[in-house]
């Protein structure tokens, strides 16, 4: 079995983002998706701190610390881009104007519950940012994560044990070994890396998995 690396995962997610989509990429791994969006498609990247039409990182000489993304890294604005305040930014999310958001996760349940903001550990200082707004607001929530933790436990679970970010909000999970649709009908496998079988995947995750019709 050949696991996908981070770049392969980002490229795979990017393939599923259509022309004209309004997209928010979460901080961390999802930010990489921007590097793989097909040049021939016009896609609008929204950043929660108040810009639409976000472009790539600037050259060193062009860094402007009043032009940053949600991860507080310098970015650029494409021609046609715009700035707006936080009320409008989160109305874009909550009001259902964002087509797709891509988020990282600690856990996703087979029915689409998301846990990605807090481990619940007693000494942890919780921070939530815009994760809960994106989870309930975006029309489609994609999650990008390794399927297993470093300790080998599945992050796709029957029920999340970490505190939830949103209920039944995730539609698709992109992992390093397989892609799943999740939701009220449970988890369906829509792609696997070469050499992996559905039975091995069931062993790895310990959850009920169906093969999607397209690949069954």
């Amino acid at each position: 079995m050949q696991r996908m690396n981070r770049e392969d995962m980002a490229a795979r997610v990017a393939r599923d983002i259509p022309e004209g989509a309004y997209v928010n990429l979460g901080i961390g791994l999802p930010t990489k998706v921007a590097n793989f969006l097909p040049q021939e498609r016009e896609i609008f990247l929204q950043s929660e701190n108040g810009l639409l039409g976000m472009g790539p990182a600037p050259a060193e000489d062009d860094i402007d610390w009043e032009l940053i993304n949600a991860g507080k890294q310098p970015v650029t604005l494409l021609a046609g881009g715009s700035f707006f305040h936080h009320g409008d930014s989160f109305s874009m999310m909550r009001g259902g104007h964002i087509d797709i958001c891509v988020l990282g996760a600690f856990q996703v349940s087979v029915n689409g519950d998301l846990a990605n903001w807090h481990t619940g550990a007693a000494d942890a200082i919780p921070a939530v940012g815009g994760a809960m707004d994106l989870a309930v607001g975006a029309k489609q929530v994609f999650v990008m994560m390794d399927l297993l933790t470093k300790g080998g436990e599945s992050k796709l679970v029957a029920q999340c044990s970490y505190p939830l970010t949103g209920l039944s909000c995730v539609s698709r999970v992109y992992t390093d070994v397989a892609i799943f649709d999740v939701g009220p009908a449970g988890a369906h496998v829509i792609e696997m890396v070469p050499g992996l079988t559905i039975d091995q995947l069931r062993d790895m995750t310990g959850v009920d998995l169906q093969l999607a019709l397209e690949i069954a």
Partner: peptide, 18 residues
């Protein structure tokens, strides 16, 4: 915060704005 000297009310960002 860990010393209990500052209280925290954590609010999701969009709810903070709203």
């Amino acid at each position: 915060y860990r010393a209990g000297q500052v209280e925290l009310e954590l609010v999701p960002q969009g709810n903070l704005a709203a």
